[in-house]
Structure formats: structure tokens, C-alpha cells
């Protein structure tokens, strides 16, 4: 694997609502390389979640292109389902399937989509559960878990598809404060294992410590981009200075 290989390339990405009256994304350009941890920060309404959700086409962009492993996924002829299998996503509200056990939550996609045998999928799921310290909850239902546990399960559920990139949409925003740490710990571990990650978050500590690049967005535009030290210690734009003054 070439460490400098581009995994996702975003060209002039636009998302308009009401025929252009609201510009949620106004021409985003970026490249995400393998092994990078890109942390997207910005005030609420800046379009950072919309940007993330466009990457796997949960939001359909109004204009621009997104290339994933060289394929233009915004092209209508592209079968997005194939590409989504390689793009894991973690949501703010976990979105575990309440009618399935934890184990079933994790193995259903590998079994149905990757045609893995139940034994094979289960072995992998148990291995991942062990890594996040939840192997004893395999047969529990989501309603029996705490928020932090749910989110850790949501992360390993996505990992069961062996994705090339993990997208995190404010993964700790719906958690009680004392549970934020355990989820961030799993994410750090992932970054340490060289997983490519795009993380929308308000956790500035995480951005500083784990991010290889920070992207600051405001009003649907990428205002500033750089390594964490640069962004946090030496902000250039007034918009970023204002934002950092509020959150730090």
C-alpha cells in the first residue's frame, strides 16, 4: 500500500437547497490520502456534516465530483452500493439495528454483501468485539447498552466490512461526558492502526492529538486547512480565530 496514494478526491463539491438559495456546500476541493486522519471542524451550520455525508452519497451533491479510488461516485452510472461497502460510517446517534443482537448487527452486512459464512463473519466480529472490550455483550440487544458502548459497537460494525476509510459524523456529540473518552480511545486506536479517517467533531483535543490534517469550514466553504499545530497555534483567518476563541 502506497502511503501517499489518494483515496478520495473532491472537486468543486456543491450542495444547494431551494434552488441555490441556501448553499450548504459552496465549492469544496480536497484530497484525502491513505492513512490520513482528516478532522473537520467548524461552527454549526458550516456544512461539515453535509460534506461528510456527501462523501458516501448519503447526501446527493448538487454539483462537483467525488472520486473514490479513482471512480467518480457522483456519476449516476456508478453503483454506489459497491463503494459504500468500503466506506464505513459512524453516526452521531449510533443507528444500531434495535431488532438484532450486537453480533447480528455486526455480521449481517458481511454475510449478505460479502457472502461470508456465518462462522467466518462471527469469528471476525468476536475478534473486533474483543478489541473494544465488549465481547461479553455479543448476544445483548442495543437497548441494553450504554451510549458509549453503542457507539463502540457502531464503530466495529462498520469495521466488519473491512472498509478503506471510516467516516465519523460527530461520533461523541450525543454521549454523556463520561462516555466520550472510551469512544475517542477506540478512534485513536484505529488511527494508530493506519485507518484512513474523516472525522467531523467538536473534540478539539482529539483533532490536535490524532488529526494529521485539520479542515476548518464556515458557511459551506473550507476556510483554512493544515496540520493541527498550524491551525490551532497559528490561525490565519479571522473566522478561524473567532471560532477558536469560542471553543478553546
Amino acid at each position: 500500500m502506497n502511503a501517499n496514494e489518494t483515496l478520495i478526491k473532491v472537486e468543486n463539491l456543491q450542495k444547494y437547497y431551494n434552488g441555490g438559495a441556501i448553499k450548504a456546500l459552496d465549492g469544496i476541493n480536497t484530497e484525502i490520502k491513505k492513512g490520513e486522519v482528516v478532522v473537520v471542524i467548524g461552527p454549526s451550520g458550516s456544512g461539515k456534516s453535509t460534506f461528510l455525508r456527501c462523501l458516501n452519497l448519503l447526501e446527493v451533491p448538487t454539483g462537483g465530483s467525488i472520486f473514490f479510488e479513482g471512480t467518480d461516485i457522483t456519476d449516476e452510472k456508478t453503483n454506489i452500493n459497491i463503494h459504500r461497502q468500503k466506506m464505513g460510517m459512524v453516526f452521531q446517534h449510533f443507528n444500531l439495528f434495535p431488532h438484532m443482537t450486537i453480533l447480528k448487527n455486526m455480521i449481517i452486512a458481511p454475510m449478505k454483501l460479502r457472502k461470508k459464512s456465518e462462522a467466518e463473519a462471527t469469528a471476525m466480529a468476536m475478534e473486533l468485539l474483543k478489541r473494544v472490550g465488549l465481547e461479553d455483550r455479543a448476544n445483548a440487544y442495543p437497548s441494553q447498552l450504554s451510549g458509549g458502548q453503542k457507539q463502540r459497537i457502531a464503530i466495529v460494525r462498520a469495521l466488519c466490512m473491512e472498509p478503506e476509510v471510516m467516516l465519523f459524523d460527530e461520533p461523541t456529540s450525543a454521549l454523556d461526558p463520561e462516555m466520550v473518552g472510551e469512544v475517542l480511545e477506540v478512534m485513536k486506536q484505529l488511527a494508530h492502526d493506519n485507518m484512513t479517517m474523516v472525522v467531523v467533531t467538536h473534540e478539539m483535543g482529539f483533532a490536535k492529538e490524532v488529526g494529521t490534517r485539520v479542515m476548518f469550514m464556515a458557511d459551506g466553504k473550507q476556510v483554512e486547512e493544515g496540520i493541527p499545530a498550524e491551525i490551532f497555534e497559528n490561525p490565519k483567518s479571522d473566522r478561524l480565530k473567532q471560532f477558536l476563541a469560542k471553543v478553546l
Partner: peptide
Amino acid sequence: DQGQFEAGRSLGF
């Protein structure tokens, strides 16, 4: 919840 659709679709279903 719409999140259930999104979770399913994001896995590749």
C-alpha cells in the same frame, strides 16, 4: 427513524 435507513445504506445495502 431515518437513521436506520442511512445506517443500512452506509453499510452498502
